[in-house]
Simulated assay, not measured.
Amino acid sequence: MTQDAHVDFTDPAFQADPHPVYAQWRRTGPVRRTRLPSGLTAWVVTRYEDARRALADPRLSKQAAFSVGSSQVVNQPASPASVLSRHMLAVDPPDHTRLRRLVSAAFTARRIESLRPRIAEITRDLLDAVEGRERVDLIDAFAFPLPIQVICELLGVPAEDRDAFRAWSNVIVAGSQSGDRLEPAIREMVGYILAQIAERRARPGDDLLSGLIQVRDEEDRLTEAELSSMVFLLLIAGHETTVNLIGNGAYLLLREREQWERLRGDLTLLPTAIEEFLRYEGPVETSTFRVATEDLEIGGVTVSAGDPVVIVLLSANRDDDRFPDAAELRLDRAQNPHLAFGHGIHYCLGAPLARLEAQIAFTALLARHPGLRLAVPAEDMRWRPGLLLRGLEELPVLL
């Protein structure tokens, strides 16, 4: 057992570049017990093969993370947060199978592709809005409003509430690092979601939220907690991944200027470039908690029943044993089975939508602003707090 309680995950230096720490861990103790910012001690998995197996191991339970039969309680739902603890990422089969099937109908390849014209229109409008300006924050002006408007329209909730979503989301995903702001943010978001459900129940439309309500009311397949939790998951996960995918990808291209010019000169590289952004500086740093339901082995280490486990996707995707020249950004990397969207039954349902949004966003950005440059040195960028997501707070650029 390797213990690294001295690592300060909240240190801005670690948040700016956690890769050296993870690289050392992959070499010296790829599965280790580590104290997290919340104070919880968990097993942390950092190598690709171990991570891939752990993500698909049914003995590592999401649902048990809400009720651990030990002195450490992980993800313990407390009012009002309990209303948000019944979504797909928080339960195991058979509940997970049922919930995923319900939402899958809205994320078919055909349905996602049908959104292309509207995504392109939103992208064009956002770029029109900054036309003529010398300097903008690309996160605030582009990477954030694009996916939040798409998911709001898909769900049928007011896009004008996006600033509230952003504030709640930033606090919630930062977790314990948000301090006393966390509970009020959860309470406000729960209240908002319940109000939107009441509104759609009274006046249903052809949006996804109305469809989920209809399934629950007519077929009694979603409980009220499941319905609220699902809306929460779709609102948060439906935009956070894409915000960071676009923001991180743009940052990587502008930090290594020759990569920007290469992609601008050959847009056929865009599909593999997006996959490389996901691998190299993915939008999700770690998995959500799992708990071992029995004694098991991960990477040669025995994990006892009841122990929490966290899988570091960001580290697994930089594993040299799986990716040649893993520390290099290669826009033409052909074989790229990264874990940015997870693996197994909890693989991200919205991955095709995130990829489509990124494809449209980068195509438009490269065409409209070929001379785009960072407005501040790359080392001055600030990364969002928390271990769950990996993204910039701001991306100041010169148009």
Rank of each mutant, 00 (worst) to 15 (best):
M1K: 04
T2L: 14
T2K: 11
D11I: 09
P12F: 01
R33F: 07
R33Q: 15
R35N: 07
L40K: 06
T41I: 14
R47W: 11
E49D: 15
A54R: 11
S67I: 00
V68M: 05
V73M: 10
A81T: 00
S82G: 06
A90Q: 14
P93F: 05
T97A: 15
T97Y: 12
D137T: 06
P145M: 04
P145H: 05
L146R: 09
P147N: 03
Q149W: 01
I151M: 06
C152S: 15
L154G: 01
E160H: 13
E160Y: 07
R162M: 07
D163T: 08
A164E: 10
F165A: 01
S169D: 02
V173T: 02
S176Y: 02
Q177T: 15
E188Q: 14
A195V: 06
D206S: 14
G211C: 06
R221Y: 05
S228M: 02
L233V: 12
L235R: 06
I236F: 12
E240N: 00
E240P: 02
V243G: 03
N244L: 00
I246A: 01
L252D: 13
W260M: 04
T268M: 08
L270F: 14
E275H: 12
E276S: 07
V284S: 00
R290Q: 14
D295L: 03
I298N: 12
V301S: 03
T302S: 13
V303H: 06
A305T: 08
V309T: 09
V312R: 10
A316P: 06
R318N: 05
E328S: 15
L329H: 10
A340K: 02
G342I: 11
A351K: 00
A358E: 07
A364C: 04
A364I: 04
L365D: 11
P377N: 08
E379D: 15
E379K: 11
E394C: 01
E394F: 02
